[in-house]
Simulated assay, not measured.
Amino acid sequence: MTSPAISAGSVRRRWPALAGIVFAALVAIGMANGVEQAPVLAAAATVYIGCAALQKPGAAWPIFLGTVAVITVAKLLDVDATLIVLGCGLALGVYGLLRGVLRPGYGLPLQTLALLGFGAVAAIALFVDTDLGAYLVAAGLLGHSAWDLHHYRTDRVVVRSLAEFCLLLDATLAVLIVVVTIVG
């Protein structure tokens, strides 16, 4: 009888999930409250609308890296990136609209609604009590992880590797936010 072991093949197949967990842990280092993670929720929705507007699922990783760059620069400048990232998402949506990308329905139309919903949660979290804001961000991230799972299973809008990465990033970060909020 052999004992189950983690093989190199299983790690290669699940690298997006592992990377999502690691990225969530890195983002959470030094987190004082969950509201600080509102830009992550905004970025998650921006990646999806960007891919829908461009009609290129493969654009997911470059758009994700772009949102990471925006969030990082904003942190260095001591500015909250939530509204900046949402502005980028809206700009991508308008670009898609100007290109006439109204089909398929699960593309730009649905991703626009998602950006508005997740974006509203992220933005509202900035203006309410810190604990309530943290719980809003955590709930938004959990909701977005369900969104990621749907897109992973249907293999639409973004590449599956990004959907899997984002699913674990969002869910892990949401749990970390709740823990920090309860302990803090």
Rank of each mutant, 00 (worst) to 15 (best):
V47L: 08
D155L: 01
L65A: 13
H150L: 07
L77K: 14
F64K: 03
V47F: 09
A69F: 14
D80L: 11
G66H: 11
G133M: 12
I177F: 07
Y152P: 01
P57K: 14
Q111L: 08
V159T: 12
F165M: 01
R99F: 14
T46M: 05
P4H: 10
V179P: 05
T82G: 03
H150S: 05
G30I: 04
S10V: 11
R12W: 11
A114D: 03
V35C: 03
L168G: 00
V158P: 04
G143T: 00
D78V: 08
A146R: 12
F23R: 06
M1D: 15
S161D: 07
F23H: 06
I177H: 06
I29R: 15
I177Y: 06
Q55K: 13
L142Q: 06
V70Y: 12
G93P: 12
L173A: 02
G105K: 15
F64P: 00
F165H: 04
E36K: 10
V157S: 01
G107I: 01
F127I: 03
L113C: 09
L110I: 02
V40C: 05
Y152D: 02
V79K: 15
L113E: 09
A134L: 08
G58R: 10
A45R: 07
A32W: 14
T72N: 11
I124L: 15
A74W: 11
G140D: 08
R103K: 15
D148T: 05
A91D: 08
A139S: 14
V158S: 08
T82Y: 02
K56N: 13
V128F: 13
K75L: 07
A5I: 11
I63K: 13
P39V: 00
Y106T: 03
L41S: 04
